[in-house]
């Protein structure tokens, strides 16, 4: 595997992935330029960040079982108490590690 540092086929696949990702990043912002921002559109955009987060996290908790739930809950609690996202993430990962050490999940 180390013989070829950069294999052509893999680099092509990587380039394709990169292009798709950049297209996604630019098109959302660009398309919204054509939509007039009424109060209703405004409310939709304001609710979007929290909705994206909820949509990313909740399925992980549902499918990840007790360990994922403990990690997410403890990270949220830690954030609430400390208001420090670094501490929150460390708490979440630590709780997950401990839970697995204890044989959960």
């Amino acid at each position: 595997m180390a013989a070829d540092l950069l294999r052509t086929d893999i680099m092509i696949a990587i380039a394709v992935m990169g292009l798709v990702t950049v297209a996604m990043r630019l098109s959302g912002f660009w398309l919204m330029g054509f939509v007039p921002v009424t109060p209703r559109v405004r409310r939709m955009l304001d609710a979007l960040p929290g909705s994206i987060i909820a949509a990313c996290v909740l399925p992980v908790v549902v499918s990840g079982g007790i360990v994922a739930a403990l990690a997410v809950i403890s990270a949220t609690l830690s954030m609430w108490l400390t208001r420090n996202d670094f501490a929150a993430v460390l708490t979440g990962m630590g709780v997950a590690a401990l839970a697995r050490l204890a044989g959960l999940g």
């Binding site: 929290g50 996290v57 997410v72 809950i73 949220t76 929150a88 708490t91 979440g92 590690a97």
Partner: peptide
């Protein structure tokens, strides 16, 4: 073992606060 797979969900969830 170190909970690294839950790093992103934890960060996301913390942001809701």
């Amino acid at each position: 073992t170190f909970g690294i797979d839950l790093l992103v969900p934890a960060f996301f969830a913390a942001f809701l606060i």
